[in-house]
Design a protein around this nucleic acid. Structure first.
Lengths: 352, 352
DNA sequence: CTCGCAGATGACACCGTTGTCAACGGGTCC
DNA sequence: GGACCCGTTGACAACGGTGTCATCTGCGAG
C-alpha cells in the first residue's frame, strides 16, 4: 500500500548515458548541449552523434532546478474561455513556441487574490517570465515576482521595469464616438461593463471627451454601465431605444457586449441604428449590415507582448528590454453600422 | 559576459530552512509536508508552524525531479483560439485546479507531428497526466506516453487503458437530421468541414443514416464538405439555396460553421430555412429565430475528462480509472430554427 | 629550454526534495 | 531481565543536470 507503483514510468536516456556513449565526461556533454565554449569540434560532433542515436532530450525539471529558470512562460488572463483572451493566448503561444518557450496558461477569473496566487506559483516554478492581464494596476507587486520578468497585457500594471502592452483605450473610444458624431448622431448610447478596470474607465473617458468636444450633452440615461453579459446588453439596448428621446447610435465597449447588441438590433428590426464595437468579433463582418469595429487586435497585442518579454529573457540582455506603457496601434474598421447616418431630428425638421 | 547575472532571483525558503527553524531533520519536515506516517503530533505541529511563519512553498522542480511526477496536467487541443476548445480548456482548468493541478496548455494546430512533439515534451516534463484532442485515432502511441496517464477528448484515441470522452456524434447527428425530417423536410443540406476526423465522419454518417431510414434520397449536391471557415460556409449556404431543387433545411456540423450559416441566412433574408447546428454557440439563443442546436457541451466533456484523468492519478489507484470510450450525453435543444416546417413541395401541391 | 597562457576536459559539489535504511527509545511478552 | 517490536527520527544517497575550479596538454614568447 505504501509502495503502490503508479505504473512504472519509462525513464529516458540521461546526459550521463550520452557522455558514456561518446566517451567523454558528463560536463563535456553538458557543454555541447548548451553550446558552451571550449569544446573541440571532434568532441562536439561525437557528443552530438551520441545524442542523436539515443534520441536524448534534456530534462526540464533538472535543468530548472540547477539553472534557476526554465523555458516556460506563464500566462495569466481573465479567462481562457473569453473570446478576446483566447485569441490573445493562442497568439502568445505560437510566438513563444517559435522562440522555444512553452506556455503555462491560467485564468484569474478576475479575482485579484487568485491572480496573485497564480503568479506566485508560476514564479516558484521558475518560469522564465510571465505575461499577465492584471485585474488592477497594483494587483501584482515586484515582491510577488521575485525578479521574474513580467509583461502586462491589455491593462497597465505598475511594476518597476516592466512593460505593459495595451491599446489606446481612451483614444480609440474617442475616435469611435467621434466617428458616430460625424455621421450626425447626437444621441449616442454607451454600453459598458460594470467593472472598475482601467480599460473600462479609459473607454468611458474617451466617449465623454468626444461628446464634450463636439458640444454634445453627456446624457446619463444613455450611459449603460451594467452590461456584464450578452443578455444584459440586449436589455440595455431595448431600453436606450425606448427612451422618449431615444439613442440613434450605440458605442459598445467590448466585443462580448456586441455579441448581445447585434442580435438585439436584428431582433427589434432596428438596422437603422448605428453601432461601433470596441473589439472585433467573428461575425462582425458577416452580419448585415456589417459591424464597424475598433480593432484592438488581440493578435497584435499578443505579438508585441511576447516580443517584449523575449527581449527581457536570455539570450538578450534582461536589463535592456522595453519598459513602460506600449500602445499598440488600433484602428477603426468602417464596415457599415458605424456609417449609418442619424435620422433628422424633430428640431432639424422644423428648422428646415 | 559568461556570468551575465540575469537579474538575481530571490530564492524562497527551502525545506531545510523549515527543518532548521522547527529543530528537526530535513526528512522529518518532508514527512510533514507530505502527510507521511509516523510523525508525532508535537513534531508535526512544530513543523507546520515553521512552514507558516516562513510562508514556505515547496519547489515543484525539485519535487518533480526527485519524485518523478508533478502536479501539472498537460492539455493539447486543436487550437486555444477555437470557440469549442477554449471553453473546453477553461473548464478543464477549473476542474483540475480544484484538484490541485495546474494546466500546461498547448495547441496542436491539427498537425499530427506537432501534436506528438507536444505530448512527448509534456511527458518529459513529468506531467502527472495529459488530456489530448487527438488529430487521428493513432496519432499518439503508448510509447509516446511512456506510462503517463492520458485521457482523450472530443475524438477517440487508441491507447491501451486510456479513456476517450466523446459525444455520440453519429447518434446526435442522426437525431438532428431526423428532427428536421420530422418537420417535413426532404431536402436537408449537410455542411461539414473537409477534414478526415472521426468526429466529422461520425456526423456525416448519422446524417446519412437518418435520411436512409426515412427513405429519403442522399443527394450529393446537398452534401457540402468543403466548409473550413465562416466565409466558405456562407458560400455553401448560398449554393444549396440556389439549386434547382433547393435545400429547405440545413444541418451544420459544427458551431464554427454555424457562425457563418446564421449571418448568411439573415443576409439572404431566408429565415424560412430550417437549421440545426451541431454545437451550441454564444449567439444561438439570441438571434431571431433562435437556433436549434445539439448541445455537445464542451463543459460537460471537459468535466468528465478531467474526472476520468483524476481517477488515474494519485491518490487513486491508477489501474482502476475509467477506460475505453465514454459517451457524454448530448441533447437537442429546440429553439426555433429547427422547428421551421418545410414548405409544401410541388409534388405535394399537385398531388393535393 | 623554460615559462606562461589558453584551449580542452573532467572531478566534484550543489540545486531542493524524497526514498532507503539504520538507529534509538520505550513498551510488551515470555 | 532479555528478546522483540513498533513508532519516531535522521543520515545519506539519489534524481539529472550546471557552476566552479583544477588539471592537462601543446605551443609561442623570452
Amino acid at each position: 500500500m505504501t509502495s503502490l507503483t503508479p505504473r512504472r514510468r519509462v525513464p529516458g536516456p540521461t546526459l550521463r548515458d550520452v557522455a558514456a556513449l561518446a566517451g567523454v565526461s558528463l560536463k563535456t556533454a553538458s557543454r555541447v548541449l548548451n553550446d558552451g565554449p571550449n569544446v573541440s569540434s571532434a568532441t562536439r560532433q561525437a557528443v552530438q552523434e551520441a545524442m542523436e542515436s539515443l534520441s536524448y532530450e534534456p530534462d526540464p525539471a533538472a535543468r530548472s532546478l540547477r539553472a534557476g529558470h526554465d523555458r516556460t512562460v506563464g500566462v495569466v488572463v481573465d479567462s481562457v474561455g473569453d473570446i478576446f483572451f483566447s485569441e490573445l493566448a493562442a497568439t502568445l503561444e505560437s510566438v513563444l513556441d517559435a522562440a522555444g518557450y512553452s506556455c503555462l496558461l491560467a485564468s484569474s477569473n478576475r479575482q485579484e487574490g487568485r491572480e496573485r496566487d497564480i503568479v506566485r506559483s508560476l514564479v516558484r516554478r521558475r518560469c522564465a517570465g510571465v505575461i499577465v492581464a492584471p485585474t488592477t494596476p497594483a494587483s501584482i507587486s515586484a515582491a510577488d515576482l521575485a525578479g521574474t520578468p513580467v509583461v502586462f497585457v491589455d491593462r497597465v500594471g505598475h511594476v518597476e521595469g516592466a512593460a505593459s502592452v495595451v491599446s489606446d483605450d481612451p483614444g480609440m473610444a474617442f475616435e469611435a464616438t467621434r466617428h458616430l458624431l460625424a455621421h450626425g448622431h447626437r444621441r449616442v448610447a454607451l454600453l459598458s461593463d460594470s467593472l472598475d478596470l482601467p480599460t473600462t474607465r479609459g473607454r468611458q473617458e474617451g466617449y465623454r471627451r468626444a461628446l464634450t468636444e463636439a458640444g454634445v450633452e453627456v446624457a446619463p440615461e444613455l450611459m449603460r454601465m451594467e452590461c456584464d453579459d450578452e443578455s444584459s446588453a440586449m436589455r440595455q439596448v431595448r431600453e436606450v431605444l425606448d427612451l422618449a428621446d431615444p439613442a440613434t447610435a450605440i458605442f459598445s465597449c467590448s466585443s462580448r457586449l456586441s455579441l448581445g447588441v447585434v442580435p438585439a438590433l436584428h431582433q427589434f428590426g432596428r438596422t437603422d441604428v448605428a453601432l461601433v464595437s470596441f473589439g472585433d468579433f467573428t461575425m462582425a463582418d458577416s452580419v448585415q449590415p456589417a459591424v464597424t469595429v475598433v480593432d484592438h487586435s488581440a493578435r497584435r497585442i499578443a505579438q508585441t507582448a511576447a516580443e517584449a518579454l523575449l527581449a527581457h529573457l536570455p539570450p538578450h540582455d534582461p536589463t535592456h528590454g522595453p519598459t513602460g506603457v506600449i500602445e499598440v496601434p488600433a484602428r477603426l474598421i468602417p464596415r457599415g453600422t458605424g456609417e449609418i447616418a442619424a435620422p433628422p431630428t424633430p428640431q432639424q425638421m422644423s428648422r428646415a
